[in-house]
Nucleic acid binder design. Structure first.
Lengths: 240, 240
DNA sequence: TAGCACCTATAGCGTTGCTATATGAAGTGG
DNA sequence: CCACTTCATATAGCAACGCTATAGGTGCTA
């Protein structure tokens, strides 16, 4: 029942709440469950934390500080934008590993209650982006870039949490991450090059693809597949 | 007390819930408040909506459909990416004008109860991005681009909602919006003409062809051929 | 008129977050 | 050694919550 009789009740409450939050599959967690697991009665909870939300805030702060601490332990890689990527991934990982904590933090955001944690994350990102700005890698003020990237980061994490775990596509995260970083960075190295600007029908696209495929030796298809593919492509592109 | 005695209870419940949700400043809305305002008793609510969440879903759907309807009324501007921008702004506007509805929709997302509305919004975006893909303006598959942009859109809107109304900085929205669109578009109007690595022009062409094929129901290939063809195309266009 | 769906109300169950009040333990000053 | 305050916990219970078993009323079809 009560799982750690030695520790002071305040800490037992924190641990019980964290454990229940982590294990509850979407369903709400009640104060009675928490106090029972902590081996404590209701008033103790309200004495120490004032509120159910106060307890959750404390749990979240603890978890978040742990996450921030791990964040700071990353020695700067010398490539600030790479560090920003790592912070992004860490953020997503944190959200996915503790979805209920995360939802308490970012999902139920209300105007009057706590941008405190958001601000912490923002500052952390901003510091890193500042390094990037110093070496001229960024074309946007670091604070604005940090806010923008963090917003996208939160959105992606929420979307991933909302998906059933088995069909979670982390590519959504990496793609959005790189899109955001690319957009604020001064490094325009990229592929693209849309030559035939303007209207492009099936035929035009097929011709373009046909030419490009033959020129580039893509290894996405086997040679036999490629042969058939090109044949079909020819059929389409000569059908005008 | 009850505010619209003529209408059927189902609609009165919807309106009462909408009104309470819109006016409640962050605090939760109870079924008792709703039924009292609607001039109805509890079982009526559960008969029509099954659930408290069912009611909220219905309210949200109604509001969202209104918003989507306004969205569709925009005549396509001929510039799909410009339309995407307008959809983004509309999304943010919707969230800021009905923050509580919006939080019900996107804030409390849980793995098991994912509102179909997210999927709707995704499809809407994807359709528009498909147009952009057909004319070769996009270097990413439309579905993935839609998911990514929508995620960022949601994140930005939540962040803006979390800020006190008087210091809301809408530039966060426009900046993130343009960053995302810029990152997925082939238009590198930024200065240095990008060198194409050859492979990525294949990707762009494949994406364009893929979108065009699905839109045009070409009869150059049999359905089984087409299926395989599209699969290969997808493989090519997913290779970064 | 009888029967049958559909819709709504009465009443209340079990649980929720939270608290008024009381009790025990620990320290402090005389 | 004893009052006295302070902090921490327990007993017991309130009002509000989401929700439902059951029954009654209503309008339609036969």
């Amino acid at each position: 029942m009560s799982f750690d009789d030695q520790l002071p009740p305040k800490i037992r409450l924190l641990r019980a709440a964290a454990e229940l939050l982590a294990n509850s599959e979407g369903s709400a967690v009640s104060t009675r469950q928490i106090t029972k697991l902590a081996g404590v009665t209701a008033p103790t909870l309200y004495h120490h934390f004032g509120d159910k939300e106060g307890l959750f805030d404390a749990v979240v702060s603890a978890g978040f500080e742990e996450y921030v601490a791990g964040e700071r332990d990353f020695a700067p890689s010398g490539e600030p934008l790479e560090d920003v990527r790592r912070m992004w991934d860490n953020h997503v990982q944190f959200g996915l590993s503790q979805p209920h904590l995360y939802l308490v933090m970012f999902g139920n955001i209300r105007p009057e209650s706590r941008p405190a944690i958001v601000a912490d994350a923002e500052v952390l990102l901003e510091e890193m982006l500042n390094k990037a700005a110093i070496s001229g890698q960024i074309n946007v003020p670091p604070r604005e870039a940090a806010r923008s990237i963090l917003a996208a980061n939160v959105g992606v994490t929420l979307m991933l949490i909302a998906e059933p775990a088995e069909e979670r596509n982390l590519e959504l995260s990496t793609m959005t991450r790189d899109s955001m970083i690319f957009a604020v960075s001064t490094d325009t190295a990229r592929g693209a090059a849309a030559d035939d600007s303007g209207k492009s029908s099936v035929v035009v696209a097929a011709i373009a693809l046909n030419a490009a495929l033959q020129a580039s030796h893509s290894d996405q298809l086997s040679s036999s597949e490629l042969k058939l593919f090109l044949e079909w492509l020819h059929r389409i592109s000569s059908s005008s």
